[in-house]
Design a protein around this nucleic acid. Structure first.
Lengths: 354, 354
DNA sequence: TTGAAAGCGCTAACAG
DNA sequence: CTGTTAGCGCTTTCAA
C-alpha cells in the first residue's frame, strides 16, 4: 500500500526497535571516543583544513574503530544539495536506454553525483509518480524521457530550482530544456534512401503517434514520399502499439495483397527486429531501413541499413546541460537537436522486387 | 521578500529569510497558511488518521497552493529508513545488465523503494567507492555485482544492518547472500554439446580468471574435456581482457596453424559477438557455442547456439532476497545457484570440418 | 481531534 | 587550531 507520494506505508515492527540505522555510530560517538569536539570530527571527515596531523590521526583512528560512515541524509538536510540526480526513462532493459543511462551516470560521476533511475514503462502516471518521488528526495536535477505529454505538475519543482532536462521527447505544456534526435530529418533521409533505390510503394510501421518521436518519424516518412511525388496509401502505414504480434501482422498485410510494398521503413529498434523476422520468411527480397541501430545488424544477411541515433550522446548532452543549469551558467531553456546517421549495410539498397 | 504565511495573527518570528532548496515551502509554511499546527499537516501528508475532513481540506488546499512536497531527507533522518536500495554493477550499457537492473527495480518498486544505480566499470576501487557512497546515503539495502574480490570493507555496514546480496559473482572474504548462475554446469554442458557433435579440438576464449564467472566457465570447459578424455592444449585457451582486438587475434590464432580447433566455446556475450565476426571471414565452417544469449542470435547464418542465463531472474531473485532480509524473515546467508539453458540454433551443431 | 516541544546527525557561524 | 551553539524539515511523544 502506498500513499500519494508513492512511499511505503508498511508498519515496521520488525527490526530496529533499538535505534534507527541499526545503531550506527555518529560524529558525536567518534568525537567522544577521540576526545575531541564534534566539529573537529566534521572537519576530518570532510577534509577541511585546520586540524593538527596528530588530532586528525586520533580522529581517524576512532572513525576506523567504530566503522563510522557519515550520514548523508543529515548532511543533505543541512546543505540543501543532495549530489544526486534522477533519470526517468521508459525501460532500462531496452538496449537504446542502457548507453543513455550510462552516459548520464558518467557525467553525474564527473560532478560527484549519484544517479537514481526509474522506469516509467511508458505510463504517464508512473512517470509522474517517479518524478515526484525523486523530487521528494530533493534530487538536484532531473533527466526525464517523458511518457506523458503534460508536465505542468513539474511547475512548482522548476520554480523551486530543480534543474530539469527532457530527452528524446519534448516536455508538454512547460518551458524546459529539451535534447532530441532529429527524428524528422532522420526518417526523411531513410525513406528518401529507399526512394533513391527505386522504391515507390514503401511501408511505414511505427509507434502510436501520441509519442512525439513516432509522430516526427511519420512526418519524415510523409515528407520524403511527398518530395518524390508519391501518394501514400493508407494500407502502407501501421501506427500503434509495437508489440511483436501486432507488428508481425501489420508487416504481413503490407506484403500481401494485389499491391504489396517493396520496402519497409520501421519506426524503432523493436519494430525493426520483428520485421526482420517477417522478411526472413518472405520469398522475394524486401528492402528495409530501420530507425535506431541494432546490435549485429552488420552480420545479418543482408546487413540491416539503419538511421542510427547516438543514445549515449543524447544522455551526455542532457546531463551536461543539467549541470550547467545547476552552475547557473545557462540562460534559458533551449531545444537541442542531435543529428542522426544513415548507416548503409545492404537491406536498404535492395532494388524493388516487382 | 514575500510573506507567504499571509493572514491571521500568526507570530512570524520563525520566518525563514532565505533557505536552501531554492526556497521550497515546508510543513511549517503549509501549517501557517492553513492556520493549523505543524503536526496536523504531517498527518494529512502521511495519510494518518485523526483529522477532520474540513481540516484536511484546508491543509490540502494550502499544499496545492504552495506546491509543497515533503522533504524526504528530513523524514529519513528521523525515521532511519530511506526506502531506497543501491545496485552496483559493471556497466549499465551492457545488454546483460539492462534486464537485471530492470528486474531489481521492479521488485524495489513493489516494495515502495527507489533504485540508485552505479557502474563500477569492473574496477574494484570504484566498486568500493560506489558502495560506500550508497551506504552514506543510508540505502536500506545493496545489490552488488562485485568487481573486486575482497569485501571486508563492508563489514561495518553489514553489522549496522544494511541488507546485502551479491549477484553474478560471490562476495570475497565475507559471509553474505549470493545469487549466481550455474556457470560451471552451463559451460560444461555447452562444451559437452560440441563434443557430442564430434569435436575434439575445442577452443575456449574467456575473461580473466580472477573474475569468478570466468574461472567457473573455464572449469566447466576443462571438466567436459576431461570427461571425454581429451587433453587440452594450451594453444586452445585464451584467458584475459575481452576487448575485441585481443579476442579477434586469439580466435584467429586458434583457427590457424597445423592443428586448428574445429569449434570454439566463448566465455561471454562480448566475446561471442567478436568471434562471430571472425568466423564470418573463415572459409570452412567452425562450430560455436557461446555463454550468454545475444540478441538476434536466431537470425544469423547459422543461428548461434548459446548457454543462456536469465539475467532478469538473477536480479529478481537477488532483490527479493534483499527485501526478505529487511523483513527479517531470512535466517542466514545462503548461496543460490540458478540453472542455465542450452539453446541450440545451428552453430553448435555443425560437425567438425576436418 | 489537535498541537507544542524534543530531537534525528549533520554543517554554518561564530567564539575561544 | 578547536569547540559551542543553533538550526535544516521532519516525526515522535506527550499533553491539551
Amino acid at each position: 500500500m502506498t500513499d500519494r507520494t508513492g512511499r511505503r506505508n508498511v508498519p515496521d515492527t520488525h527490526r530496529r526497535s533499538e535505534s534507527r540505522y541499526g545503531n550506527r555510530p555518529t560524529m558525536k560517538d567518534v568525537a567522544a571516543r577521540a576526545g575531541v569536539g564534534l566539529k573537529t570530527v566534521s572537519r576530518v571527515v570532510n577534509g577541511e583544513p585546520g586540524v593538527t596531523p596528530e588530532t586528525e590521526r586520533r580522529v581517524q583512528e576512532a572513525i576506523d574503530a567504530l566503522g563510522f560512515r557519515r550520514n548523508d541524509s543529515a548532511r543533505v538536510l543541512r546543505k540543501g544539495r543532495t549530489a544526486s540526480i534522477g533519470l526517468v526513462l521508459e525501460d532500462l532493459a531496452d538496449p537504446f536506454y542502457g548507453p543513455l543511462s550510462r552516459a548520464v551516470e558518467e557525467v553525474a560521476r564527473a560532478h560527484g553525483a549519484l544517479l537514481i533511475n526509474g522506469s516509467s514503462a511508458e505510463d504517464p502516471e508512473r512517470e509522474q509518480e517517479l518524478v515526484l518521488a525523486l523530487c521528494a528526495r530533493r534530487v538536484d536535477g532531473l533527466v526525464v524521457i517523458p511518457a506523458g505529454d503534460d508536465h505542468r505538475y513539474l511547475e512548482p519543482e522548476l520554480k523551486a530550482g530543480v534543474a530539469t532536462v527532457f530527452v528524446d521527447r519534448p516536455a508538454g505544456q512547460i518551458d524546459a530544456d529539451v535534447v532530441l534526435s532529429d527524428n524528422y530529418g532522420g526518417a526523411r533521409d531513410g525513406v528518401a534512401h529507399l526512394i533513391a533505390h527505386g522504391h515507390r510503394r514503401i511501408g511505414f510501421i511505427g509507434d502510436m503517434p501520441r509519442i512525439h518521436t513516432a509522430a516526427e518519424r511519420l512526418r519524415g516518412y510523409r515528407a520524403a514520399m511527398e518530395d518524390a511525388g508519391i501518394a501514400v496509401a493508407d494500407a502502407w502505414m501501421s501506427l500503434g502499439v509495437t508489440d511483436p504480434e501486432r507488428v508481425r501482422r501489420a508487416a504481413r498485410e503490407m506484403l500481401s495483397g494485389p499491391d504489396p510494398v517493396t520496402a519497409i521503413f520501421t519506426g524503432n529498434n523493436r519494430v525493426t527486429v520483428t520485421v526482420i523476422r517477417v522478411l526472413a520468411e518472405q520469398t522475394r527480397p524486401v528492402a528495409l531501413v530501420g530507425f535506431d541501430d541494432i546490435e549485429l545488424a552488420d552480420l545479418l544477411q543482408p546487413g540491416v541499413t539503419v538511421v542510427a541515433q547516438d543514445s549515449a550522446a543524447l544522455g551526455r548532452t542532457a546531463a551536461e546541460r543539467l549541470f550547467r543549469q545547476l552552475d547557473g551558467t545557462l540562460p534559458r531553456p533551449e531545444r537541442i537537436e542531435l543529428p542522426t546517421r544513415l548507416v548503409t549495410r545492404g537491406s536498404g539498397e535492395l532494388p524493388p522486387a516487382d
